[in-house]
Simulated scan of single mutants.
Amino acid sequence: MPELTTVRHAPAQRRRVPDGERADLRIVVATGSGRYADPWHPFEATSELVASILSDDGAEVSVNTDVDDALQRLEGIDVLVVNAGDPWRHDSHPAPVPPESVAGLDAALARGIGIVSLHSAVSSLRDYAAWAPAIGAVWVPTVSMHPPFGETRIRVLEHEATEGMADFEVSDERYCFLQSLGESQVVAEHRHDDRAFPTAWTRRHGRSRVSCSLLGHDERSYESAGHRELLKRLTRWSGRGHHRSE
Rank of each mutant, 00 (worst) to 15 (best):
V67S: 06
R174G: 00
R8T: 15
V63S: 04
E3W: 14
H217D: 03
Q179A: 11
R153F: 11
V50F: 05
R220F: 07
N64I: 13
L109C: 08
S101E: 09
T162N: 04
P87N: 03
T6A: 13
E183N: 05
G216Y: 04
P98A: 13
Y36V: 01
V50K: 02
Y128L: 05
D66G: 08
G226M: 07
T5V: 15
H243D: 13
D86M: 07
A137M: 10
T31S: 12
W131G: 02
R236T: 05
Y175N: 02
L80I: 07
L231V: 05
N83F: 07
S55T: 13
H227I: 07
V97E: 11
T142L: 13
A121N: 05
A23C: 11
D69G: 01
G206M: 10
H242M: 13
L215N: 03
A103R: 09
R111S: 09
S47D: 03
A51H: 02
S124G: 07
L71R: 06
L54K: 10
W201N: 00
G112A: 08
S208L: 01
E21C: 12
M165N: 02
L234I: 00
V7Q: 15
P2H: 13
A188Y: 01
R244L: 15
L157D: 04
S101C: 03
F149W: 14
E173N: 03
L25C: 14
S208H: 00
G239S: 03
T31K: 04
P141Y: 14
R207W: 06
V81A: 01
F197M: 03
L157G: 01
V97W: 14
V82G: 02
R22L: 15
L25H: 07
F43Y: 15
G32C: 11
H93T: 11
I115M: 04
